[in-house]
Simulated scan of single mutants.
Amino acid sequence: MKLNSIKILLLSVFISSGVYAQSTSATLIKKVEGFSHPESVVFNEDENEYYVSNMADNEAGDGFISRVSADGEIIDLKWIDGLKDPKGLLVKDDKVYVTNNTELIEISIGRSEITKLIEVEGAKSLNDITVDAVGNIFISDSGKSAIYLMPGDSANMMVPEDKKGEIIEYLNTTRLEYVNGLYAHKDHLYAAAWGENTDGNFLKIDMDTREIEKVSKEGIGNLDGVQPVGDDAFYISDWATGTIYLIKKDGELKEVLTSEKSSGDILFDAKKNQLVLPMNFQNSVWWYQLQ
């Protein structure tokens, strides 16, 4: 085997195992301004572009979603507008799902329009959104310390047939510590908790039993975003300080970088080994190259 082939093989092994990606230092390489209190950023590999949710100024209908190129240039600042407090974003098939205060909005990417709006009964302040391997969609509600579930077509839980496709309350407890960031991984939900006094923990929730376990050894901060790094670690953001941490499933915590206060629902790009931070107060999105 040639040396270059060996290098490529080793790199593939490192990336798939999460070893290569578990960086604990980073350099700021780009700031893109012009947003309005951005909260979340996701990447659509099929379209090779980012989507950014903009909460704007808390006036009815002033929120919007932006389209941004893979190079970080704004393609369409107000791609989808008329929203009232958009936060979490999820790309699934040819759609973007957005949490919009007390609603879940479905956007057709190809048609660039809202195709469905679902009012979530009892919701107070919907935040992050994630999907598991069989299509179940989970939504955090930071306002009431709860998680909602929209069962997929192949739901792996005991959900009545007449409730599939609807959004139902999945968990409601202060033990979720006013859950913010959410990520479904295998049989668990991993949650970045806001906490009450900058003491939010990183939590693990068994999808079947709904048991909640603290991964972090003590409260970390006002946790916001969560992104997986391989199979045994995550990047999490502390909104209060702008610090991004690498946390392993055994609770080991390492500081990666410190931006500024209000770093929100972050994105980890494993292919480029970059972190993308929506900076709410700064009205900008920051790119960091991990080393």
Rank of each mutant, 00 (worst) to 15 (best):
K2E: 10
N4Q: 15
N4D: 14
L10E: 11
V13L: 07
A21K: 15
A21G: 15
A21H: 13
T24S: 15
T24L: 10
S25C: 05
S25P: 06
S25E: 15
S25M: 13
T27E: 11
I29K: 09
K30R: 11
K31D: 12
E33P: 01
F35Y: 07
H37D: 02
H37L: 02
E39A: 00
S40Q: 06
V42Q: 07
F43Y: 11
E47F: 12
N48P: 04
E49L: 15
A56T: 07
A60M: 14
G61R: 07
D62R: 08
D62V: 09
F64E: 03
F64T: 03
I65Y: 02
S66P: 05
R67A: 13
V68N: 01
D71A: 10
G72L: 08
E73T: 14
I74A: 01
L77P: 02
I80P: 03
P86S: 08
V91H: 09
D94E: 14
K95G: 04
K95S: 14
V98D: 05
E103T: 14
I107Q: 00
G110R: 12
S112D: 14
K116Y: 10
K116L: 11
K116N: 13
V120K: 05
G122T: 11
A123K: 06
I129V: 15
T130L: 07
A133H: 08
A133W: 09
V134S: 08
N136Y: 06
N136A: 11
I137P: 01
I137K: 08
S145N: 01
A146K: 05
A146M: 07
M150D: 02
P151D: 04
P151L: 06
A155R: 11
A155C: 15
M157E: 13
M157Q: 11
M158E: 12
V159W: 05
V159L: 10
P160E: 09
P160H: 07
P160T: 08
K164W: 03
G165D: 04
G165R: 11
T174V: 15
T174S: 15
R175V: 15
L176G: 02
E177Q: 13
Y178L: 12
V179Q: 12
G181S: 06
G181H: 03
Y183F: 14
H185C: 12
L189V: 08
Y190R: 06
Y190T: 08
W194Y: 07
E196P: 02
D199Y: 04
G200E: 00
T209L: 14
R210G: 09
I212F: 13
K217I: 00
E218R: 15
I220W: 05
G221R: 09
D224G: 12
D224Y: 07
G225T: 05
V226R: 02
Q227L: 08
D232G: 09
D232M: 14
F234R: 00
Y235Q: 02
I236P: 01
I236F: 01
A240E: 04
A240S: 08
I244S: 03
I244Y: 08
Y245G: 13
L246G: 01
D250P: 00
K254P: 02
E255D: 15
V256D: 04
L257K: 05
T258K: 03
S263P: 08
L267F: 09
F268C: 05
A270V: 11
N273R: 14
M279R: 00
N280S: 14
Q282T: 00
V285W: 00
W286E: 05
